[in-house]
Amino acid sequence: MSTELRPRYLVNSAVRLDAPSLYVEKKLRMNSDREDADFQRKLIDESTTLYVGNLSFYTTEEQIMELFSKVGEVKKIIMGLDRFSKTPCGFCFVEYYTREDALACMKYINKSRLDEREIRTDIDPGFKEGRQFGRGKSGGQIRDEFRDNYDPGRGGYGRRVD
């Protein structure tokens, strides 16, 4: 293993909610390029940016600002857009001025509700141009292409494009 992924012994009486998700941990662990993994780890450890998922397509930047400002001043919100239609496709990046605010957001906002949906936040290595677009074939997020349920907040049924 290239980096120590988690503390060897969990010495707090409960899990800390301000740690990156398993998804992020796994991505770092799967990274065979040791140097890059260390670099990414450093980015994660210092990041003030959060990825926010499971938003409704109709949730506006103003609503996101209202909720996320509750932990600290937000520097920037970058809405995730459908690659083709350039309309919101259910995720965004929220950047804070301080690391402390970003961690507070993980603790206090992650998995709470916005626009009556349980949103998910995760520590992000930092926004790069291009990442604001969905990576699915349809232009939106991949998860919406492998979804069988009807979700009115995310364009109804999943749209699989072959």
Partner: peptide, 21 residues
């Protein structure tokens, strides 16, 4: 002593974080 210290640290943290225990 690594595990022992970790465990005792956990106990100290527990009485600080959850004093009801």
């Amino acid at each position: 002593n690594e595990i022992k210290d970790a465990f005792f640290t956990l106990l100290c943290n527990t009485v600080i974080e959850q004093p009801i225990k």
